[in-house]
Design a binder for these strands. Structure first.
Length: 261
DNA sequence: GCTTGTTTACAATAAG
DNA sequence: CTTATTGTAAACAAGC
């Protein structure tokens, strides 16, 4: 645990809003996304002021996470078990802070209803996708490595067996992007298990993941599919985010930030 | 019971 | 002064 130095704000309240503090935490992480507990830890590690009255400010921070559209809750990958979801920044929310001042935003970032709906549909589809994989993992033994990559997923778990008009091999994606301009592959396990995302038109190359999680024993196909989805999501987020918004000015204490121009 | 997350309500403060 | 943004409290649900 870092000790406060005379360079830090010490016990004084840092001149950053909760939104700014949360954005710093998210942005400082390698994957640009953090669970809630890690956001807490980032703040308490660097700003001693927030080591007291934790109930109060953490409630406020959670309020900000839910209330502000600039924060996006991303479901955990099935191979990353843990509590709570990951929080990241919306790709369109990076001009919130004007001229390097993290003290107050230029304007509130607010999504229109259509954008919000399609984003929520996509994220709930991802959550359903993850749950389906977990259910399959728990119910049936992991698929043999010889499983053909085009194998359709037949839902067997209880939560998938609700009466539904759509084909059963579509996992929770019935409402995926009914409106909205972003084209994306059909969110079926079949589509995600394909070796390469086929793109009808040449699209800009995706930014490679910062930390490719690819252990030597190759994970089963459904894990690859989930990883690919998250990689695409992350790449999409990063395309409008690079280069990093701010850097540390004091690397020993990490309490002062400067915004890159 | 605790953590995470959502939501409403209202006070406080900065910005225009 | 008016409005927009931020901070705080609180009720509540879901999941572990």
């Amino acid at each position: 645990m870092p000790r406060p130095t005379r360079e830090s704000y010490g016990d004084q309240k840092p001149p950053f809003s909760y939104i700014a503090l949360t954005a710093m935490a998210i942005w400082s992480s390698p994957e640009r996304m953090l669970p809630l507990s890690e956001i807490y830890r980032f703040i308490t590690d660097r700003f001693p002021y927030y080591r007291r009255n934790t109930q109060r400010w953490q409630n406020s921070l959670r309020h900000n996470l839910s209330f502000n559209d600039c924060f996006v809750k991303v479901p955990r990958r099935p191979d990353r078990p843990g509590k709570g979801a990951y929080w990241t920044l919306h790709p369109h929310a990076f001009d919130m802070f004007e001229n390097g001042s993290l003290l107050r935003r230029r304007k509130r970032f607010k999504l229109h209803k259509g954008e919000k709906d399609s984003l929520n549909a996509e994220l709930t589809a991802l959550a359903s996708f993850n749950r389906a994989f977990l259910a399959r993992q728990a119910g049936a033994p992991p698929p043999p490595p010889s499983m053909p990559s085009g194998t359709l997923y037949t839902p067997t778990s209880s939560f998938m067996s609700r009466p539904s008009p759509e084909p059963p091999e579509v996992v929770g994606a019935t409402a995926l992007l009914p409106i909205g301009p972003r084209p994306r592959r059909a969110f079926t396990i079949d589509a995600l298990l394909e070796p390469e995302p086929r793109r009808s038109s040449p699209s800009p190359p995706l930014i490679p993941p910062l930390q490719p999680h690819c252990p030597l024993p190759l994970p089963p196909p459904y894990l690859l599919a989930a990883q690919r989805y998250h990689a695409e999501l992350l790449a999409g987020l990063q395309q409008s985010c690079l280069p990093p918004l701010w850097t540390w000015r004091d690397t020993s204490q990490l309490s002062h930030y400067t915004l890159n121009s």
